[in-house]
């Protein structure tokens, strides 16, 4: 009798767990599905090859080329900047610094940085821009967004580098290599896949971020021609145009949402393929 009760309890909770997992996966599929359903009818050749016409995102014609290019530039620029900053730090805390206390303090700093909301970065960046009399520009956006994604790169790559066995270091040192040579020729090479994956994740973060670019990159209907011009980004194109009660304008918002979602899906697919493919060749 008692036996039966425990069996039933087990079955009950197992079903509940399956249900929870299904709800989560189902929600994700529903999100992607509804973005596609709303976005596909709005897609057209003009949408991705033209900038909006008729003034400040209220015109009924044209597409979202400005936002696509703006977003790609912003994400590429900030990923590039964040990589340049993060790699030396990762090398220092793993190869040079043998005091774990210091390394762990640095890790904690980046964990905290990871947790800071992007709106706070945006507000922080804005105070600096006001101080220096800077206007909203692509450059300001790149700098602030690179701060947002910096901890992402540092922490993901750090995890990968930490996994490298000490034997590899010792082999390199035994050959007479300095720490610098070991880092450049062994450690970076060994963690190349991890770095690439981190870059993809960071790129996805950067292209999807709206709160930080709201203050710093601004919004414009034209394609940015220099780093000092304001630039449109996909998240803001969605946000601004969705709230306008003109069907042609909301269509542009849905098309932007679709493109952003596709970019994000492609990135995560690419990251997965990379990890699966190159993990085999690791020492």
């Amino acid at each position: 009798m008692n036996m039966k009760k425990t069996k039933i309890e087990e079955l009950f909770f197992k079903t509940l767990m399956r249900l929870a997992a299904i709800i989560i996966i189902g929600t994700l599929l529903l999100i992607i599905y509804s973005i596609f359903i709303k976005g596909l009818p709005a897609m057209s050749w003009e949408m991705i090859t033209q900038t909006p016409k008729g003034g400040y995102y209220l015109g009924k014609e044209g597409g979202i080329l400005n936002a696509i290019i703006g977003s790609l530039l912003l994400a590429a620029g900030s990923t590039f900047l964040a990589t340049i900053i993060s790699l030396p730090i990762i090398i220092y805390i793993n190869v040079y610094c043998r005091k774990t206390l210091f390394s762990n303090a640095v890790r904690l700093c980046f964990d905290i940085m990871w947790g800071i909301p992007s709106i706070v970065y945006g507000a922080f960046g804005f105070t600096f821009m006001v101080f220096f009399g800077m206007k909203t520009s692509l450059l300001a956006g790149i700098i602030i967004v690179s701060l947002v994604i910096l901890p992402v790169i540092v922490r993901i790559v750090d995890e990968v580098v930490r996994m490298i066995s000490s034997g590899l270091y010792e082999a390199s040192y035994a050959l007479g290599a300095t720490r610098l040579q070991t880092s450049m020729k062994v450690i970076l090479k060994q963690s190349a896949t991890g770095i690439l994956t981190a870059l993809l994740v960071a790129f996805g973060r950067a292209i999807g971020d709206a709160a930080a670019v709201l203050f710093t990159t601004g919004y414009t209907d034209s394609i940015p021609t220099s780093l000092f011009h304001a630039a449109a980004t996909l998240p803001l194109a969605i946000f601004f145009q969705l709230s306008v009660p003109i069907p042609e304008v909301t269509a542009r918002a849905y098309a932007s949402a679709l493109i952003l979602t596709i970019i994000i899906l492609l990135i995560s697919l690419l990251a997965r393929v990379l990890t699966n493919k190159y993990n085999k060749f690791k020492v």
């Binding site: 999100i31 709303k38 996805g204 999807g208 918002a253 979602t261 994000i264």
Partner: peptide, 12 residues
């Protein structure tokens, strides 16, 4: 993938 979906997309 759920972790990677941007905030605005959730909003939409």
């Amino acid at each position: 993938i759920l972790a990677g979906i941007p905030s605005v997309i959730f909003g939409v």
